[in-house]
Design a protein around this nucleic acid. Structure first.
Lengths: 344, 344
DNA sequence: GGGAGCTTCCAAAGCGCTTCGATATCTTTC
DNA sequence: GAAAGATATCGAAGCGCTTTGGAAGCTCCC
């Protein structure tokens, strides 16, 4: 069923039917109603490609997600982000396409995406500190919003990010207030912007109290359970082991918890742990009482905000770059406590 | 840059340029080369919408993923599945679109997808035992492949699934061989086909040894960490607590591990645990030595297979329904051991 | 009663591509 | 050397939609 057939069926011209369906004013309300009903009954939906060709708008948003084939690693945050974004797309009548991109030929990927014309805008995931995609996309003239930021770039562009620095500063301060002095940071890969910023927040808090960060208590790696375990195990084996640890994801925190148990210690009593919690749907930090004390910021929500921002930019390309900095909550769970007396 | 401009630039007709680019034989190799180079240099890529309109093929595959807004739950398996599928799509020049669908208006969603014509086929995720989508899609005449199966449906359709029944049967047998008799099943929601089949495998193994399944040792729910924790904690509090537990996901297994520790017991010694492991990239079951004894089947691989199958179906719609049953490996990790003497 | 001003509808062009059918040029064959 | 075949190219139609620029039919008012 296409427009032509529908029009013939209704004894109307394609023009009128099209206008009726798209809400143009110059069509009699009664005919519009008739058209709408017929469309419904005959199960008509305009062909998206034809529509796109005619209007020049694809009505779809692209998500380009970096998938390292080297590490075969898919960021678990991604699913929830997309779920949030999707909610907004659906409301606005947009579709969503995904493309995984290897570490190579990133730019080519974006260029083709634009040339093929099947997206009106894209969301950039997982920016590094000096992410080459951002200047490239600006120059390409494709609307985009970054989930995260690129610290070293001084260009206007739109982004949605959580305040990583502040969150980790607060987390560190919280531990310092509890009397901890030997605080470890088990961070993500630090060429990733979010991880870099978290380290900065961590270091600032320590420095402000006259405690320099100790490299033995710091590690950076891909946020897996075993990474958390190994980093923590190594640090716990030190003669002056840390009394508290901060980490970047719940998954790593779970590994840390395992290492703490394996060392015969108890989390929250012997060793305090704070994690960042992206509030992932399949990895809730406890049902009501949180397991881990955490800095929490919903990545689902970030997805919604980024989508809304991008749609606004597409609607009005002259809009100046927007940004939104989300503050993480510091929620207290069972994984933190005062520094144990004997190790003070 | 469009075809017309490119053709003008080359002093050729659109026809010839189009044919050169699409590998038709009736064009001089020298001109083809010239065209290819110009396209490369001028950064030309055919407009996907126009191409789709002309050919009637969208060159994109749709993934419809059920997102329960009620539970706000996104299946973590999804990311890796898609990464696998995407690998195949890229090779074949296909794009991928995602649509999340609420619990309502599923059918409407598929119908529109078809009517709008922006997919050539779809992958159906998370089938329930009597999934209404399957007969509906068949009748709709849209190519599709199901990730999983619908036990109660007796229709030909294409699917890729792992042998859930057999995997859980083997896992149960393995525990029985170790002397365990009180074995618990901490399963997913059992209207989901995979969970139902796993229960069947579990029960079959028990029955074969003359041990009927005990409802006190069985639970079904959404596979979260806290669900694993609570189910396990409840069972461990029983006067005759289970000596072993089988569960459907690593995330739940982590919760079970926590419950075991909380009860002052040790996993692998006091309580054995086997989990199913989807081999998710961000949730590896230990780097080399697996933490959990597990039935393992890569969902990334399932994605690749499903994609290949769907592409074959699209290429030749007359192909009969295909299917592929993947056997899970049973890998031995540190979470299982012989039944403790005192509880035998 | 006849333009002015609305309202309501339509014909046709155009979006960027593929592809059918035709044409022009060059070889081959008897 | 003309017919036949092979090779390389082109013109134009058509995919299903939107949208511009009318046009037809009304009402209205002097």
């Amino acid at each position: 069923m296409n427009l032509k057939q529908l029009a013939a069926h209704l004894n109307l011209s394609q023009t009128t039917v099209s206008r009726a369906l798209n809400g143009y004013p110059e069509v009699n309300e009664q005919t519009r109603k008739r058209v709408m009903e017929a469309a419904q009954a005959l199960n008509y939906a305009p062909n998206a490609r034809a529509k796109g060709l005619a209007t020049g708008r694809a009505m779809t948003i692209g998500h380009v997600i970096p998938f390292s084939h080297q590490h075969q690693m898919m960021n678990p945050v991604f699913g929830d982000f997309i779920a949030g974004a999707s909610d907004e797309y659906v409301k606005a009548g947009y579709d969503m396409t995904l493309s995984m991109t290897g570490d190579r030929d990133e730019e080519e990927n974006y260029r083709r995406l634009k040339a093929k014309g099947n997206v009106d805008g894209i969301i950039v995931h997982g920016p590094s500190m000096r992410d080459g995609r951002i200047p490239f996309l600006r120059q390409l003239g494709l609307s985009f919003v970054v989930h995260g930021r690129a610290t070293e770039l001084d260009l206007p562009y739109s982004w949605v990010d959580m305040n990583n620095t502040h969150a980790f500063q607060r987390a560190t301060d919280f531990l310092l207030d509890l009397g901890h002095r030997r605080i470890a940071l088990i961070n993500g890969l630090e060429f990733m912007d979010f991880a870099y910023r978290r380290r900065v927040g961590f270091e600032q808090a320590l420095t402000a109290r006259g405690t320099g960060p100790d490299p033995r208590y710091m590690s950076a790696g891909e946020m897996t359970e075993s990474y958390g375990f190994e980093s923590a195990a190594r640090m716990l084996a030190l003669p002056d082991r840390p009394t508290a640890m901060i980490t970047s994801s719940v998954i790593a925190a779970i590994g840390i918890r395992r290492a703490i148990h394996a060392a015969g210690l108890e989390m929250g009593r012997d060793i305090s742990v704070i994690t960042h919690d992206d509030d992932l749907s399949f990895l809730r930090n406890g049902p009501d009482v949180p397991i881990f004390t955490a800095t929490r910021s919903s990545v689902y929500e970030a997805g919604r905000i980024a989508a809304t921002m991008l749609l606004a930019h597409i609607a009005d390309p002259d809009l100046p770059a927007q940004s939104r900095l989300l503050e993480a909550q510091l929620i207290i769970g069972g994984s933190t406590g005062p520094v144990p007396q004997d190790t003070r």
